[in-house]
């Protein structure tokens, strides 16, 4: 698939995945998780990867973050290997759970990235935002001295996002960060992320299984097939920014959702998968499409 056609200048590719392949061993069987994934995210773009559960979205994200090594293929983040990009603290990883340290206060959790690997910490005032500033921006200023156990799930997830923004990485890799929240909280957090992104304009690769979330947040939606995962289609999202609360009610939005859903359904067809993946695909399709 070619990257999104509408370019507004010679933007260097932020994240490039080229022919990324990965399989896992499950006892005697070798399960192919990713088969030749090709995807590029330009600098300053928000790209979402969507697909049925178990299609390897999270694996893809972990490979991009340098947490897993691909069996074949190449990953570069601003021209560097993921590991080197991590070494210079250019990668902000937001896992599925908030993964906060329960013995630290909210503020200290947000400070954590600045405290480890200090050599790569940008000097204060230069790039790195003040953790307190970020916390104010996500509405956590009043709870910064509380501990994670005293917060609601949505607030904890906000802290995790604030933690990722606080050390000013160039790229954010987010693994279904809202999937464990209730629908109402999720909607609020999506819009908060939108407005944060509007200000900071990070390069983002965002994994989700929610069609609405994908369309609302992204510049382009990469639709993955069921196992083995490949990018079946790249749906450009041309909705104007900033996107307000009402954008979800527009016809344009609905049309895009419809398009993504159709691509998802096509991608999950047994015929397209490898032999033996049909059973899995039909099983997971309901899970992938049930959102919204």
């Amino acid at each position: 698939m070619p990257p999104s056609p509408e370019k507004d200048g010679p933007a260097p590719a932020g994240l490039v995945l080229e022919g990324v392949t990965k399989s896992f061993r499950d006892g005697a069987r070798l399960i192919s998780a990713l088969a030749g994934v090709r995807l590029s995210v330009e600098r300053g773009r928000f790209v979402t990867v969507i697909g049925p559960s178990g299609c390897g979205k999270s694996t893809l994200l972990r490979i991009a973050a340098g947490l897993l090594e691909p069996d074949a293929g190449e990953v570069t983040i601003f021209g560097e290997s993921p590991r080197r990009a991590c070494a210079s603290k250019r990668v902000g990883f937001v896992p599925q759970s908030p993964a906060l340290l329960p013995w630290r206060t909210v503020l200290d959790n947000v400070r954590l990235p600045l405290q480890v690997n200090r050599r790569a910490t940008p000097p204060s005032g230069l790039g790195a935002r003040e953790p307190e500033e970020i916390l104010e921006a996500v509405g956590l200023g009043s709870v910064k001295h509380l501990r994670p156990a005293q917060l609601s799930g949505g607030m904890r997830q906000r802290v995790a996002i604030a933690r990722a923004f606080a050390f000013d990485p160039e790229i954010l890799l987010m693994d279904e960060p809202f999937s464990s929240l209730d629908e109402l909280t999720r909607e609020v957090l999506r819009h908060e992320l939108l407005s944060l992104w509007q200000v900071h304009r990070k390069t983002v690769l965002f994994v989700t299984h929610s069609v609405t979330e994908a369309v609302l947040l992204s510049d382009a939606v990469a639709v993955m097939t069921a196992r083995p995962g490949r990018i079946a289609a790249l749906v450009p999202v041309g909705l104007p920014r900033p996107r307000g609360d009402l954008v979800e009610l527009t016809d344009e939005f609905r049309a895009l959702e419809r398009q993504v859903r159709l691509e998802l359904r096509d991608g999950s067809r047994p015929a397209l998968g490898a032999p033996g993946s049909g059973r899995l695909a039909t099983g997971e399709e309901a899970g992938g499409g049930a959102d919204g």
């Binding site: 972990r62 973050a65 340098g66 947490l67 590991r83 991590c86 070494a87 210079s88 603290k89 990668v91 902000g92 990883f93 896992p95 599925q96 759970s97 993964a99 906060l100 340290l101 954590l112 990235p113 405290q115 480890v116 690997n117 790569a120 933690r163 050390f167 890799l173």
Partner: peptide
């Protein structure tokens, strides 16, 4: 230790010692 918190520290390139002491 929370495996996802470990992952966060790995993406920050925290040293083994930092991971031990902080997490």
């Amino acid at each position: 230790a929370d495996p996802e918190a470990l992952e966060v520290l790995r993406t920050l390139h925290a040293s083994q010692f930092e991971t031990l002491v902080r997490l």
